[in-house]
């Protein structure tokens, strides 16, 4: 029988939220409810027929203003497995200056009466903006360099399955922290549930005042990886200027890349994570990325379960009292 680690001491009876825009708006019991619900969703994904009728007749609109493959597919699969109707709008590279404003796009969409909008946007705060202006549920699928709450939840889900707990886990998050919404959401979630987080990266890629997150901050990756249960490598985000923080890929890999030698500093049973897409040979050595400790593909699988859980909790019920 599957054990359920980290069972909430006070089980929540409901998830009374309109939107999921960031981790900051979730309480610890709410985080646990999402993760527990995702366990049930994961079971569905093992069945012969990986589909339940739960969201029949509901419409989910996926608005992707920024390129994404894995997150968009993950949401679309989650929506279909829950029997929601889904439409996807991909406008990568389109900017407000070229035409319709985000608000107009969203209002036009509202005329189709979606129950939820999933939004990925290059501007930090875009999901908050929609959440404030639209009556439907808004799910943040990554906004600028701000937040990526479903990624943090799926990472936590993956860690909890691998390690049996989150509390007290030693997690090293390494690389381009400055441009990483994944890092921000992960630090927020992990510190909230009692994990010990260490951030590591070149000083040029660490945001100001980052130590106020509650994470330990170091500039030597070895100091972060040493004794860690989880090593999460971040992608160098060259498209956001991450490449300007160091001279070249060779030096970055030499100083900050996760090599097999550095991996050995972590605990023997440590897991290696990466939110993808990876720059092999820049932040991570292929032999580690594809090695036995890598749970990178488990993360992808967890993504569907976690997004099913989030959609179920947000729009499974009517929401009115």
């Amino acid at each position: 029988m599957t054990r359920r680690p980290d069972a909430p001491s006070e089980p929540l009876a409901s998830f009374a939220k309109k939107d999921l825009v960031d981790i900051g708006s979730l309480t610890r019991p709410e985080i646990q409810l999402v993760l527990d619900t995702a366990e049930s969703m994961r079971e569905i994904n093992q069945r012969t027929i990986k589909k339940v009728p739960t969201l029949r007749g509901k419409l989910v609109a996926n608005l992707f203003f920024e390129a994404s493959t894995r997150t968009r597919f993950s949401f679309e699969i989650a929506e279909r497995r829950l029997s929601a109707d889904s439409i996807s709008f991909s406008a990568a590279g389109s900017s407000v200056s070229k035409g319709e404003t985000l608000l107009d796009t969203a209002r036009n969409l509202m005329a189709m009466k979606p129950d939820a909008i999933v939004i990925r946007h290059q501007a930090s705060g875009a999901p908050h903006f929609l959440a404030r202006n639209l009556p439907c549920a808004v799910v943040n699928a990554g906004d600028g360099t701000h937040a990526h709450p479903t990624q943090a939840l799926l990472d936590a889900f993956t860690m909890r399955r691998a390690k049996g707990r989150l509390e007290g886990l030693r997690v090293a998050i390494c690389g381009d922290v400055l441009h990483s919404r994944v890092a921000r959401s992960n630090v927020e979630l992990l510190t909230k549930v009692g994990a010990e987080v260490t951030l590591a990266g070149p000083r040029t890629l660490l945001p100001v005042a980052v130590e106020r997150t509650g994470a330990r901050v170091v500039t030597r990756i070895e100091d972060a990886v040493d004794g860690a249960d989880v090593v999460m490598m971040l992608r160098v985000q060259k498209e956001r200027g991450g490449g300007l923080g160091f001279p070249n890929d060779r030096e970055y890999f030499e100083l900050f890349g996760l090599t097999p030698e550095r991996r050995r500093l972590a605990k023997k049973d440590a897991i290696v994570m990466h939110p993808g897409p990876m720059n092999r040979g820049v932040e991570i050595d292929s032999s580690v990325a594809d090695g036995p400790d890598s749970v990178i593909l488990d993360q992808v699988e967890a993504g569907v379960a976690v997004r099913m859980a989030v959609l179920y909790l947000l729009i499974g019920a009517s929401g009115d009292e």
Binding site: M1, T2, R4, P11, L12, A13, S14, F15, A16, L33, D36, T37, E39, S40, M41, E43, I44, T54, G57, Y312, L313, L314, G316, A317, S318, G319, D320, E321
Partner: peptide, 15 residues
């Protein structure tokens, strides 16, 4: 009757 209840019920594991 899910669409008639106020909030999504907590799921229990199917095994």
């Amino acid at each position: 009757d899910l669409s008639t209840v106020a909030s999504s019920p907590v799921l229990k594991r199917t095994e």
